[in-house]
Design a protein around this nucleic acid. Structure first.
Lengths: 338, 338
DNA sequence: GGCGAAATTGGTAACGTTTCCAAAAATTCT
DNA sequence: AGAATTTTTGGAAACGTTACCAATTTCGCC
């Protein structure tokens, strides 16, 4: 691999001059610059990012961690971050969890990977980290944003949606369609986000005078498989219900698939409402009504805040994100007398 | 950020000794090592990857490029690569395209990003690169693997499936179920992979005595939206058909969603067969019959071959990957008299 | 207790860049 | 033409690490 020294030698100029042409900083006469450029071309020279980052300390990279590569939730967020970063002349480096096993440990390992690479800032999409974990990071922690998770000690570095409100919205949608007998497929009980939306959902049903203790709730794993299996379990149980709330769209789609193969009409017999309003909801059969969380906005504003911290810019940043219901075809008014 | 010098000073040892403890190479007495370890802990020292990579030249990273973050095709492949790399003590760095615009240019830019970071090897998932592009890489090209794309000049570095055979399999499945009036939703006409599977499909129909020139083919974009729109366009056209071949599962799912909302029974009125057999096919409604491409194996063997090149190991590598049909619920025997 | 061998240790020279400073060359002005 | 100014240039020092070599310490043995 050719180095800047090779380039300088071939072009017959000094090291400093070559560096100036390559980095574009400082003045070089037009014809010297041209000679250097020809040498670069000739040698197929590419600056070494490692060598470059060493004297300056600036890597022009933002490190992002996501818990897994499966499912349709994390990658669109990654996509938003990537696009915004590139639009601002910065790069993205990603660390991944495996999606199973100890989520907190994986997040810390991923973060370590990113720190070793000397990123200018860090963006973590994980709800597994604790306040202590962040404290243990020391000074590193100042250029860090948490997406989809809120921690009191660094609340201004956290960007997320109000899931309690999101849960209430789901309940309101079902109540509006006169449903009173309702079942729930929840996500991981360890996920605060999940708990918040279930609590909001139950609170609203409670307000409507429904005995929430009798509502069947199955904890699942946010996957379509989980949704399928849970829907099957619900049907197999003696519970009767006319509507089902799924804590994310993937489980909703899994449930839809189960109902279709079991010959249970949606929304004829059972209405299904999902959560997140990801792309999956748009093209399921039937198309899935879902609580829309403006993840695009959440991620975008998180990135922008971080960009402000790292590169001393001053982009406007929003911190409140309102959920809403995206009506599609999977929720209908309850059939008479059911 | 603490450096190895800070650690050495605090532990009261020389630079070399600290380095030996950290890297684990060379011998250090037990109690000195312990003092160094305490200093590391105390200072929250993390070795700088950039500084580390410079004297040795080994980055312990494999660079991977994928054309986009959308859809359910690329990320599972990324997941396989990641898992296998970690299992071998190596890391993954990923560059992403945007999914629209000039795919070839984006792939070259992504590769450049990876090369600048001095990866030990490169894994490109892109069918946009030409032989010339590879040639322009010079010596870099030797530690490179192409996934999902074949180039004659470096055929031993390419890992892909036989899509012509895959296309034939899709046709056989439909013929077996007595379908004779068939429509096709294809992917990008510029994708060789796509063209191969359509050609294989048509060839097989031709063998069965079907006039392939009369088969309606709509070129789309591999997305569910594309599938939905194309299905709608097909229904709106005067063509009558009992079966539909979609060049990937995402378009298949989009088509399924359209048929459901249009009140067209699948597989009652129209059978649909997808391609790739990704996770999407498993949980659509109805579950999508699809041509299974063993992408898991393709990717795994590509990684292993690359690992052999980069780290002088000798893992067994397979190069032939057989497609098959995964029967689910979206294809049925053609209704009598249709 | 002293000798030789082995283990441990400290420090210098890389690695490929950027950033500076001083020197040289080009340009402007009188 | 020469002085003053500006532009351009070359090279040393630094960034944080590893690899090597030489020096020192430790250990085993007679």
């Amino acid at each position: 691999m050719a180095t800047i020294n090779d380039v300088a030698r071939l072009a017959g100029v000094g090291l400093g001059t070559a560096s100036r042409v390559i980095s574009g900083k400082g003045s070089v006469s037009a014809k010297t610059a041209e000679r250097v450029r020809r040498a670069i071309e000739e040698l197929k020279y590419r600056p070494s990012h490692a060598a470059r980052t060493l004297p300056t300390g600036a890597s022009h990279m933002i490190g992002v961690y996501i818990p897994m590569l499966k499912g349709s939730f994390y990658t669109p967020i990654l996509n938003i971050i990537h696009t915004e970063l590139r639009a601002n002349g910065q790069n993205m480096v990603v660390a991944f969890g495996s999606g199973n096993g100890d989520a907190r440990k994986q997040a810390m390992e991923g973060l370590e990977f990113l720190i070793e690479r000397g990123c200018d800032g860090y963006l973590l999409v994980s709800d597994a980290l604790t306040e202590d974990d962040i404290a243990a990071l020391g000074t590193q922690a100042s250029r860090l944003v948490l997406l989809n998770h809120s921690l009191n000690s660094i609340h201004n570095q956290c960007f997320s949606a109000d899931h309690h409100a999101g849960g209430r919205l789901a309940a309101q949608a079902l109540l509006e369609m006169k449903h009173r007998r309702i079942a729930v497929i929840a996500g991981f009980a360890t996920s605060r986000d999940n708990v918040a939306r279930i609590e909001g959902f139950m609170a609203e049903l409670g307000n409507a005078g429904i005995d929430t203790s009798s509502i069947p709730v199955i904890d699942s794993d946010f996957s379509p498989e989980g949704g399928w299996n849970s829907a099957a379990a619900l049907i197999a149980s003696k519970h009767k219900f006319t509507a089902l709330f799924c804590a994310n769209d993937e489980m909703g789609v899994g449930a839809l698939s189960y109902f279709q193969q079991a010959g249970i009409a949606v929304p004829g017999k059972i209405s299904v409402i999902g959560y997140d309003d990801t792309a999956t909801a748009e093209y399921s059969a039937p198309r899935l009504t879902s609580v829309h969380i403006p993840w695009y906005d959440v991620a975008l504003n998180g990135v922008r805040w971080l960009l402000n911290q790292c590169y001393e810019t001053n982009k406007p940043v929003k911190r409140k994100f309102a959920a809403s219901v995206t009506w599609r075809a999977s929720v209908a008014r309850v059939a008479n007398g059911k």
